[in-house]
Amino acid sequence: MPEPERGPTPLTRQVAARIAGYIRETGAAPGDRLAERTLAAQLRVSRSPVRAALRLLADDGLVAAAEQGGYTVAGPGSRHTIPDESEAEKRYLRIASDRLDGELPDRVSENELVRRYGLTPAQLAHVLRRIAGEGWIERLPGYGWEFQPMLTSPQSYADSYRFRLTIEPAAVLEPGFVLDRPALEAVRAQQLELAEGGAGTVGNAELFARNRAFHEAVVACGRNPFFIDALRRVDTLRRLIEYRRALPRDRAAVRAREHVAIADLLLAGRNADAAEHLRRHLSTVSVEKQAGG
């Protein structure tokens, strides 16, 4: 059964956000070329997710396809400008918090959101694109937006971890398992960066995105579309509650080292050991997060 066509992966969206930040921080001018190799080295990922992220940014009008191939920073006539990611993150997290607290109804209009959060139409469009891409809001036919169901209770959160304990180690042991080495090396590099100090500098949303990308990359190697589809669905459902239950950064670094160890076992072809490490990791992190919540 072929896997249904999907939008960008969490890793692609995360790399796209980091490229946008790189463009802003380096002061790159419209027309400046964006070299895949340079970006991959700067962001410590392989060129494959960089290529996918550049395509996503081109679709959003933030970069432009160059005549000679590749991409450049978009010019003044582009549809959008690179947003201030720190302010955009604050707007995003405020909406996420209000939704988790039940302060926002299931259906909202853009005018209501503009008034409630004091946003410009462009700022609202940016945050709605992100939320829609993450799957927790959808545009209604004709008018308005509808928030999608999310996990909010401690019981549903605990249930999600028991479900993951069932499917994730099993995916590693699937008979059709095929190691996607570039994808696994890319998420391993991200986890190594967290373990070596990066966990103390990233926000809760990015920490969740990196960890989600790691687990989904592992399960995707199982080549069972039911497993990966189920994990992606539960990851979308648990997103907002995870922001509240993010680990202290010293513990997040420990968990990142566990991710690196799991990746190393898979890269060495030791799938049975990797599955056992993954099972222990999920069991203990579940208890740790529920105790802290």
Rank of each mutant, 00 (worst) to 15 (best):
T72M: 04
R139W: 14
E146C: 14
S78K: 06
I19R: 02
D59A: 11
P10G: 12
A16R: 02
L128C: 10
Q42G: 08
L11T: 02
P83G: 06
R91S: 04
L128V: 09
I95F: 09
I137D: 13
T9D: 15
L104W: 06
L119S: 05
P105T: 15
G7N: 11
R94M: 10
A16V: 01
A35W: 12
Q14S: 11
E134L: 15
D106A: 15
P83W: 12
V127D: 03
P149Q: 14
E89V: 06
L128N: 08
I95H: 04
E25Q: 08
F147K: 07
R116W: 02
S86L: 13
V45A: 05
Y117A: 04
G142I: 07
P149K: 14
L140Y: 15
R55L: 15
S46Y: 05
E36I: 11
L43R: 03
I19S: 02
L62Y: 01
A88S: 10
H80S: 10
R13S: 03
R33G: 06
E85P: 05
E87R: 09
E138R: 15
D84S: 09
A20W: 01
K90G: 10
P149M: 13
A28N: 01
N111I: 12
R99I: 00
D106N: 14
A41T: 05
A96L: 08
E25T: 08
D32L: 02
T26L: 10
E110A: 10
I23Q: 00
A65S: 08
V108L: 11
G70Y: 00
L57G: 02
S48A: 14
R24A: 10
G31E: 03
R79A: 09
R94W: 07
S109H: 14
